[in-house]
Design a protein around this nucleic acid. Structure first.
Lengths: 342, 342
DNA sequence: CTGTTAGCGCATTCAT
DNA sequence: ATGAATGCGCTAACAG
């Protein structure tokens, strides 16, 4: 089956085509000044020998590893990670770069080790991704090469970063509800101590304020990101004197719990209560009944942006580092209705 | 910030420590015959110079890339991919190997390109993972290096593979229901034309048969993997003359639809109907009301197994290739009840 | 247009 | 125990 045939080198190709190695190298690298005749002979030899250039040798010679490092903390726990990685990987691949991925589970020792390995392999840059937006503290070694933060930022903002525009998403969701005539709009947010929660809340309040709606905490709750808090707070909210006519949820999972509670209360979505989620977690949002309108976090695009930035900024990557906020688009499904149209 | 200081080589370290490069190389590789004195001087020099060995150079010299390739088709569409990758990556990392990940979206051209790149980089082996179990046809080039199939297999079984034990899972779920006293057990399976569906059905039938229960198609349905088919068939099944007392679902998403339908029919899980899912898709299974008992597909372990196999079998990887089936454990939550105990 | 040559940084002989 | 020399496969610089 597998022939353990000796490695085929550029020299073998050169011999086979009766030329010098330099000429072979030229056709390998698409150099123009090669006669058609020799080029064809060489290409034939390459095909016959099934020759593949040895990447490490080329790398050593050209000092170009054509590789980015991708470090993540606790990638395991979230399905969104896939899109982040895919956006980065696709973009890298299109530019003849490959991704070396290491998952550190947030373990600082592994993290340092990961960076060391990437230094050794001379990656052209590092993407450091977290699974939810937060402030990170990275080993100083990252400053030795271009580094881009995905879904996180350093306290001093010295590293470029790309994060979702949480506030924009919160604003858009709230404004959408307002434009559908809602005035009593509840918000079951994420856990209070997160950047995402803070941003979404800011957007929620900004929208209410802009449309001259009262901004109180009467309709505001902080959950735990999961379905059970949506369930619990939906009950609580609907028992208020003037219950909300719409509920904006910090995650689709929260919305899932809200749906359950509403159903138990014999309340109908969207006829009785409109609901908007956050995340566009396919498996939930698309299959809830009715399908959930929600804000999408553009993970794929964020991954793409990170690689594009690294690709572009090689020379001046540490001056004026971008702090990009990506817009979260609204995904319309069937959980929002004009008030009074029920 | 970033000093563009010249690359530090082993020669620099040697000079700094007033020794030859050979000696430095020896301490780098933990060679025994070095006097304590020199070793310490060298280690000091390494630290002071912040020297890192150049991986490509070492690779070229030792012909050891310490890298595995990980190729996936359409990784994007499924959250399970993360666990597969993580299992592989963690295991690789523990053995000083890194993973080069390429996602081909099932595009044959990209696939060939991916394999070519990995050949160039001299990966020690390739893991080819699909997002659901199926028969694959790979470029012949994979036979040039150790290759392991994850969640798929070739028609001729010439490549080692690891897949979930679908039939075992189907058997276990059905048997669990039977042991809880159920006799009319419905099965809303996946789409009919998949390996997973075929295996799970086989297990379902085997269990019924083993416990002398009738095997008909009366309680059998083939859905489309998603919640809507669960919803539809649950209605259909519960309107039968002798409706099932338990429903085994081909995916947790199907179970999600079943829950919805059951609730609309004012039927209670598990008091009126017991339900078991498949996949243990955290976001669904753990947060449905009541939490869903389900079969877990051991993706993490599958990823680990693949790397372990590659790590172990370097010499004889193509003789008697394993076709490993991984047991799917039952995850007990609250959707199953003894019949009659309601 | 093409052949020859000199390293890239390292691990490994072979001497010593 | 250690230094010097060799070559891994390749690209680029230099001759022709």
């Amino acid at each position: 089956m597998k022939s353990l045939r000796k490695r085929v080198t550029i020299q073998d190709v050169a011999d086979r085509a009766s030329v010098g190695v330099g000429t072979v190298s030229r056709v390998l690298n698409g150099h123009p000044k090669v006669s058609d005749n020799t080029r064809q002979r060489i290409e034939a030899a390459i095909a016959e020998l099934e020759y593949h250039p040895h990447f490490a040798a080329r790398h050593m010679r050209t000092a170009n590893s054509q590789t980015f490092g991708f470090i993540t903390d606790q990638i395991a726990t979230t399905p969104f990670a896939v899109k982040l990685i895919q956006g980065a990987q696709d973009t890298a691949f299109q530019n003849d770069m490959l991704l070396l991925i290491i998952n550190t589970e947030g373990n600082p020792a592994l993290e340092a080790e990961a960076i060391r390995l990437m230094l050794e392999r001379h990656v052209e840059g590092i993407i450091y991704a977290t699974m939810y937006p937060r402030i990170v503290d990275l080993p100083a070694a990252v400053h030795q090469m271009p580094t881009m933060l995905l879904d996180c930022m350093t306290a001093d903002r010295r590293l470029p970063s790309v994060v979702p525009d949480e506030a924009g998403g919160g604003f858009c969701a709230t404004e959408t509800l307002i434009k559908h005539g809602h005035e009593r709009i509840a918000f079951i947010n994420l856990r209070e101590d997160s950047i995402a929660a803070e941003g979404r809340l800011r957007g929620y309040r900004a929208a209410l304020s802009q449309y001259d709606l009262p901004i109180g905490n009467r309709y505001l709750r902080h959950g735990n990101d999961w379905a059970d808090s949506g369930y619990q707070y939906a009950y609580e909210l609907m028992q208020l004197d003037a219950p909300p006519t719409a509920i904006f949820c910090g995650t689709d999972r929260i919305a899932m719990g809200v749906y359950d509670a509403l159903k138990e209360m014999k309340l109908c979505v969207p006829d009785d209560v409109s609901v908007i989620g956050f995340d566009n977690q396919e498996v939930i949002a698309a299959y809830l009944r009715p399908p959930l309108s929600t804000m999408e976090v553009p993970y794929y695009e964020m991954g793409r942006f990170a690689v594009d930035y690294l690709l572009a900024g090689n020379s001046e990557y540490n001056r004026d580092p971008v702090q990009k906020k990506m817009r979260c688009p609204f995904i319309e499904r069937e959980s929002v209705m004009d008030i009074g149209l029920a």
